[in-house]
Design a protein around this nucleic acid. Structure first.
Length: 313
DNA sequence: AGCACTTCTAACAGGAGGTC
DNA sequence: GACCTCCTGTTAGAAGTGCT
C-alpha cells in the first residue's frame, strides 16, 4: 500500500528538484522526506530517484516516472470524485472574498475565475487588490476568505493552503542589449538602469540584500509600489526590472519584451502562497473555490511557462 | 583547499490506536 | 487508565559534490 504522505513528499521533491527545497515547502525536515521516499522505494522494490549529493538536482528513474504518472492520475481522480460529490450536494452557488497582489490582475486570475464561473455559474466574488502584507492583515481580520501572496508568510494566524517557490527573472525589452541572452547574472545588470520596488514593498529589502551581497550598487532609474509599472517601463526599454515569471504561459503577457532567467546564486526564489485564516471553519463554497484554485496552481509549471514566453509583439 | 549545500543514517521523542 | 506498538517527526553528525 502506498502511503499518501510518502506520495505527496515524493511529488514535491520531484517538483522542487531537491529534498531540501521540498522540506521548506512541506515544513518538515529533509530527513523525514528522505525516509518516506526510501520507504516508498522499499515498498515498490525499485529506486525512484537518482540522487546525488551537492547541488545537482534529483532525477527520476523509470520507476519514478511511472509513480509520477500514477500520482497525477490519483490527483485527477480525486478532483473528479470531489466534483461528483459537489454535484450531488447541489453546490452551484456561493460567494468568495478573495485578495490578490497586483501582479495577478492580468496573469492567471482572470482566466481561472472565468473557467471557475463557467463550472459554477452561481458564484459571486469580491476581489481586493493590495500588497501581500496588507492582504494577510485583511485575511486574519476575516475581511477576506483567502488570499494569494508573494514572500514569506510569518503571521501566526495565517495558514498556507498551497505554496511554491518561483525563480526570479529579469524583464528585458525587445531593443535592449541583453534581450538575446538565455540567462543573466546580477553582475550583467550592474551597468544598466534598474527599476525596483520602493520601500513600501516587502521585496525591496530582499532585492537590496541580494544586490549588496553581489557587491552591486544599481543605477536606480525608477522606484515604485506598482509591479505593473515596473514591467511596463521595462517593456518600453527605460530600465531592467527583476520580477517573478507569469504563472500562465500566454503570449500576450510577454508584451514587447521577454523574461530572462536570473541565474545567480544570490537570487533566491520567491515564495508564492495561497493563505487562509488559521482555525477558521470556511464555508463549503470557499472550500470548493480554494480546492479548485489549488488544483489549477498545481498544474502550472512556472519555469517552463516563463521559458515559453518568447519575445513578443 | 575551503566553504556551502545536500542527502543519508542513527538515535530519540511524541502522538495515535489497540489491548487489557 | 496504563501499557505497548507502530508510525512519523526531529536533531546531530557524517560524507559527498559543486562553486569560488
Amino acid at each position: 500500500m502506498i502511503s499518501t504522505t510518502a506520495l505527496r513528499y515524493f511529488v514535491e521533491a520531484v517538483r522542487c528538484g531537491s529534498i531540501r527545497a521540498a522540506s521548506e515547502i512541506l515544513f518538515v525536515a529533509p530527513s523525514a522526506i528522505s525516509r518516506q521516499i526510501g520507504l516508498l522505494e522499499e515498498t515498490l522494490g525499485a529506486p525512484l530517484l537518482e540522487r546525488s549529493r551537492g547541488r545537482s538536482t534529483l532525477r527520476l528513474t523509470a520507476a519514478g516516472e511511472l509513480l509520477m504518472r500514477y500520482a497525477k492520475s490519483v490527483d485527477s481522480e480525486s478532483r473528479r470524485l470531489r466534483s461528483e460529490i459537489e454535484a450531488i450536494q447541489g453546490l452551484r452557488r456561493g460567494h468568495v472574498n478573495l485578495g490578490i497582489p497586483e501582479s495577478l490582475i492580468r496573469d492567471f486570475m482572470p482566466g481561472f475565475m472565468a473557467r471557475f464561473t463557467r463550472r459554477f455559474p452561481g458564484f459571486t466574488f469580491n476581489v481586493q487588490v493590495y500588497n501581500s502584507p496588507q492582504l494577510i492583515e485583511m485575511l486574519v481580520d476575516d475581511r477576506l476568505d483567502l488570499c494569494l501572496t508573494f514572500g514569506n508568510v510569518t503571521h501566526q494566524d495565517a495558514t498556507i493552503a498551497y505554496q511554491r517557490l518561483l525563480p526570479l527573472y529579469v524583464y528585458v525589452s525587445a531593443d535592449h542589449p541583453l534581450h538575446g541572452r538565455e540567462t543573466l547574472r546580477l553582475s550583467d545588470c550592474a551597468e544598466h538602469g534598474l527599476a525596483l520596488p520602493d520601500a513600501t514593498m516587502w521585496t525591496k529589502q530582499q532585492y537590496d540584500e541580494m544586490l549588496a551581497k553581489a557587491k552591486i550598487r544599481p543605477r536606480l532609474v525608477l522606484e515604485t509600489n506598482s509591479y505593473e509599472l515596473l514591467r511596463n517601463v521595462s517593456a518600453e526599454g527605460m530600465a531592467l526590472s527583476i520580477l517573478t515569471p507569469p504563472l500562465q504561459d500566454t503570449q500576450h503577457l510577454a508584451g514587447r519584451g521577454r523574461y530572462v532567467l536570473l541565474k545567480d546564486p544570490r537570487a533566491k526564489p520567491q515564495r508564492f502562497s495561497l493563505c487562509v485564516h488559521r482555525g477558521r471553519n470556511l464555508p463549503l463554497p470557499v472550500t470548493t473555490f480554494t480546492n479548485e484554485l489549488t488544483a489549477e496552481l498545481e498544474q502550472l509549471e512556472p519555469e517552463s511557462a516563463a521559458a515559453a514566453v518568447r519575445p513578443g509583439r
